[in-house]
Amino acid sequence: MAGRTYPCRPLNHGVRHHAFAGWRFIHSTERGSVLKYVFDYSWLAQYWPVFLKGLTITVELIAVGAVIGIALGILCAWIRSLGPQWLRPPVTLYVELIRNTPFLIQLFFIFFGLPSLGVQMSELQAANLAMIINLGAYSCEIIRAGIQATPRGQFEAGSSLAMSPFETFRHVVLVPSLQRIWPALTSQIIIVMLGSSVVSQIAAEDLTFAANFIQSRTFRAFEAYFVSTAIYLLLAILLRQLLVVTGRLIFPRRSVR
């Protein structure tokens, strides 16, 4: 953590924090004093810029991860359903490997494992790469289901209109497929966004990292995680709305089924 700049003052800011922060003797019962936990959110006034910074990193991670991850997913879905035969086994292996291992382990493998092969990267690059690879595999399966639900006649109709195979794929197959599976893709993007909270474990400074940082400074663990959980919930709701609106903008014609 040394050497990193944070948008807040360092330790010793006037308020006494210690490991038993929050526990107070309350003189309320006739039996005498009771040790009770008192919630305290006064640290928010000082530490909210830390949350803000963490939030921007989380948003950046999911924005990059979603755009490149879905592009990778489209490529893999094309290979698995229409692409060259020899490319299919490695792509299937990739998809199955990613879908059946925890994101945390993928992240550790990329960040701690790959440097021994000579691939060095920063925490944020590793986090971005892990999210792209993860979402790529999941969205591949989702998009492939959409492509396979395309009626055979659509391909033939495309080529009978003198479209090249690529044009047919792009206009006739891909866009309606994406429209068909857009709700599933939306859910998956939100799952990946929530899953991104583990990138704090390689010290990528996302929202969860901010919560860890604050609780280590103020000893207000429950409150810090409570606030960050609330921010994640809001972010998930906003992201869902954004994706629903995006879906309406990309696929305006309801007649395409």
Binding site: L35, Y37, I190, L194, G195, S196, S197, V198, T208, A211, A221, F222, Y225, F226, S228, T229, Y232, L233, A236, I237
Partner: peptide, 23 residues
Amino acid sequence: ELFQGTPLLMQLFLAFFGLGLFG
């Protein structure tokens, strides 16, 4: 909605520190 809209990691943290609040 609540459990699907928040990260599992946060739920673990809240359980870990929240159960401690009961002493």
